[in-house]
């Protein structure tokens, strides 16, 4: 009888633990899908494969760095690319996504 009680309690604990763990798990939609996909636009890797123009002496190269951002970021919470870039400039406001506002600290391992 004593062993029966111990076994019963152990089984109950095991079931409760499993239920708690299961309740805290997410179900994958598609286990086969790649977690990370990098889609690069049509860029010719071999520079000799295309005809280049010779930049002028006073050429200034553009940059991907938005030093003075003009409300440039658009986040589209959809599955397609329906939204385009904003046309609004904001010469004062910095890129608010990466502003100086502090948040939770990262715990990098």
């Amino acid at each position: 009888m004593k062993y029966f009680k111990i076994i019963s309690v152990s089984v109950s604990l095991f079931i409760v633990t499993n239920v708690v763990i299961a309740g805290n798990q997410r179900t994958l939609a598609n286990p086969d899908v790649n977690i990370e996909v990098r889609s690069t636009e049509d860029i010719v890797s071999d520079p000799g494969a295309f005809v280049s123009i010779n930049p002028s002496d006073n050429a200034r190269e553009m940059s991907s760095k938005a030093l003075r951002v003009k409300n440039k970021t658009v986040a589209a919470q959809t599955t397609d690319l329906s939204k385009s870039q904003s046309n609004k400039k904001d010469v004062v406001k910095k890129y608010n996504r990466f502003s100086n506002k502090q948040g939770e600290k990262k715990n990098k391992k």
Binding site: T73, A75, T78
Partner: peptide
């Protein structure tokens, strides 16, 4: 820093960040 979304992203939904 800041949270990037204003509403939940539901299953199969997505967030596309440009630029």
């Amino acid at each position: 820093k800041e949270n990037q979304i204003n509403s939940d992203i539901v299953p199969s939904g997505s967030m596309h960040l440009f630029d």
